[in-house]
Computed example of a mutant assay.
Amino acid sequence: MGFRLAPSAIQAGYRLEAHDSVGSTNAMALDRARDGDPGALWITALQQSSGRGRRGRQWATPHGNLAATLLTVGDLAPGTAATLGFVAGLALSDALTAIVPEARVAIAADGADTRRGRFELKWPNDVLAGGAKLAGILLESGLLADGRFAIALGIGVNVVAHPEDVPYPAISLRGLGFQGDAKDLFLALSDAWVDNSRLWNAGRGLQQVRERWLERAAGLGAQVSIRLDGRVARGTFETIDEDCRFVIREADGSLLKVAAGDVHFGAVASAQSD
């Protein structure tokens, strides 16, 4: 299909299984693990017919967009494995910066000023361009017969098109003027993953990952809202803590630490989280 691994990824022992169209690269990766695959396997496709997002939401992948899943098999604790999503965000941000260095972003959520060449990371699993969603990341796992965990780290990027019927701004690389394709992006991603996974170092380098992630965090210091247990929590996005939980400073000054949820910023927070 024309997908290629970067030389650094090949040297590090990664393998590639490339497709034109699949049901779900994440589902395929977990199937490979159950069939005995040892991991370090990238599965890529230009289209998914039954891709998934967080909380079971459908993630449509028109032909020409990138669907990529990295299968990891090992003995990682679930909490440590969950932080791989932050590694993926950094790797994708690095790859995008490498191949779209002069991107002019013309869309911004809440009417905010746009920035040049800026890809931001939205907790926990999105990559934004000027406030508009460009990519999403989904981790799924399964317990194997030998007691090890298989982790499917799925990455979906709007390369040639973005969804129109979504309640948030979205954008594609084509809309940013990028003239390459999903294969070019994957080549850069497979290279950037090697560096960022080495920094993470099976969780031992999580503090460095956290610091790099915060440098690119969308909405840091801004007003946010998040729905939790039947209520909407509002406050200021303070940081992410040492476990990569989302930290909000509420109006009374207290800190709220959130492990999972959908975050909204500014005007979008008021409009969508009530």
Rank of each mutant, 00 (worst) to 15 (best):
H19W: 09
G64P: 07
L189R: 04
H162I: 00
A202P: 00
R212T: 05
L138A: 03
G130Q: 08
L30W: 14
A67N: 08
G180D: 01
A132I: 04
F246M: 15
S197P: 01
D181M: 07
G142K: 12
L121R: 12
L134R: 07
D184H: 12
E211V: 09
L144S: 10
G142S: 15
A91K: 05
S24F: 11
Y168N: 00
I151K: 01
S172L: 14
A182K: 01
G154V: 11
A98P: 02
G147T: 11
V258S: 10
L71F: 01
R245D: 15
Q179A: 15
R32L: 13
R34T: 05
R249K: 11
E238L: 13
H19S: 05
I43E: 01
A259K: 03
V166Q: 10
V224H: 04
V105H: 11
G56F: 09
V224I: 15
R249I: 11
A60N: 13
V22N: 05
L144Y: 12
G253L: 12
T72K: 04
F3A: 04
D195N: 02
D113V: 08
P101F: 02
A188M: 02
G266C: 08
A135I: 11
T97A: 14
A222W: 04
L66D: 02
Y168T: 08
R198E: 02
I107P: 01
